[in-house]
């Protein structure tokens, strides 16, 4: 948590007022810690990019059996949680979009991408993984 100078000044004045002559280093420390814990967690930079633990998996290609099962098998093997799934099929082509929670993922994103690339090559389809932030930044104000 970063504090602005203004906030620090405000806290100091408050501590002086409340503790007055009783102030000892220990008391002041406790007081400040309590105040910080109580403080509204609203000190945020307006420029904060925020971040989520979700990735969006997009896959498309010629429809075939076993595509969803191959993808979801990797997801469950790596500790990913499938939050949402949506697909469209047009004649022999399909488009598949999944929203995946990677908070408890046992591998890193690069390894997951490599695993997906392996089955993408086997099944002759495309699989893209992109962090949700990109979509949020581009399409939500």
């Amino acid at each position: 948590m970063t504090l602005t100078e203004e906030k620090i000044r405000e806290l100091t004045l408050k501590a002086i007022h409340d503790l007055g002559a009783k102030a000892t280093p220990t008391l002041v420390k406790e007081y400040i810690e309590r105040e910080l814990a109580n403080a509204d967690n609203g000190i945020r930079s307006n420029n904060s990019t925020g971040t989520s633990n979700r990735v969006i998996l997009t896959s498309f290609g010629v429809n075939n059996t076993g595509i969803v099962s191959a993808i979801t098998k990797i997801l469950s093997d790596t500790g990913c949680d499938l939050l949402d799934i949506s697909q469209k099929i047009m004649q022999e082509f399909y488009t598949l979009i999944m929203i995946v929670d990677i908070s408890n993922m046992t591998k890193d994103l690069k390894e997951l991408q490599d695993l997906m690339n392996t089955i993408a090559t086997q099944l002759k389809i495309k699989i893209y993984l992109q962090h949700e932030d990109v979509f949020r930044f581009m399409h939500r104000i």
Binding site: T58, S86, T95, I97, K126, Y128, Q130, F135, M138, H139
Partner: peptide, 17 residues
């Protein structure tokens, strides 16, 4: 789904194609 199908495809199209 928090994003429209089209929005997601638009981003993929931009970066991949």
């Amino acid at each position: 789904m928090p994003y429209e199908f089209e929005e997601i495809l638009e981003t993929i199209k931009m970066t991949e194609i």
